[in-house]
Design a protein around this nucleic acid. Structure first.
Length: 213
DNA sequence: TAAAGGATTTTCT
DNA sequence: GAAAATCCTTTAC
């Protein structure tokens, strides 16, 4: 493609919702490529969004760290749905966590979004979060849901043309990406690989036993 | 800076 | 009944 056309294409495509096809493929690769994309949520209070700087992949029924290891249940039914839809669950009686469902219908897997760099609606996020520093608005999976107003009501919604969307961002070079693994954190399972943007002040607080691979 | 404990509900054993 | 894809505050060094 001639460079002028490529540039024009980037201009028109930047900010467009990621297509369903983006999610209908290997979950770890989708998790990598979600870095730099924009997660946006619209509620009656307004719009809030952020650039994705940290993700984690949950691969399927064979992955003991994945909720789908328990099989098809009332909770996990969303994981078995269309690629490019929302899976939101409640944890520790306190927090919501947001995932993007990946791979074909019937193959239960998803990417957990773990941290955002705030973009739109920063005042709204401050109001919702009540923290002293903006770097703490969305630097964790529970925090970003509170900041954006994400709840279980969004389960199963497509991530385009809906209150919850993921928009294409500028490509992130591999040199800016750090991959980590942490080993044997539960009795049953190794933790999944995690991707994060090197040197971003907006990544989550990383435990010591997380190590680069 | 790190470690420990509580919050509080859903889910599965 | 126990554990959980977490977060925040308190306490200790």
């Amino acid at each position: 493609m001639p460079s002028r056309v490529a540039a024009a294409s980037r201009r028109t495509r930047a900010g467009a919702p990621l297509p369903a096809k983006f999610y209908d493929r290997d979950t770890e690769q989708a998790a990598r490529d979600l870095l730099g994309a924009v997660l946006r949520c619209t509620t009656s209070d307004g719009v809030a969004s952020g650039r994705i700087v940290e993700t984690e992949a949950y691969l399927g029924e064979h992955d003991l760290a994945c909720h789908a290891a328990a099989g098809h249940t009332a909770r996990t039914r969303w994981l078995y749905g269309e690629p490019g839809t929302a899976y939101v669950y409640f944890i520790y009686g306190v927090h919501w966590c947001f995932n993007a469902v990946t791979r074909a219908v019937g193959l239960p897997s998803a990417v957990l979004v773990r941290a955002l760099e705030p973009l739109e609606g920063v005042d709204l996020m401050r109001e919702r979060r009540g923290v002293a520093h903006d770097r703490d608005l969305a630097n964790g999976p529970g925090k970003l849901c509170e900041a954006l107003g994400i709840t279980g009501a969004l389960n199963g919604l497509p991530l385009r043309r809906s209150p919850i969307e993921i928009l294409r961002g500028p490509p992130v070079p591999d040199s800016r990406v750090l991959v980590t693994a942490r080993i044997g954190i539960t009795k049953s399972a190794d933790w999944p690989l995690r991707w994060l943007l090197k040197d971003s002040p907006y990544v989550s607080k990383t435990p010591r036993h997380l190590r680069p691979v």
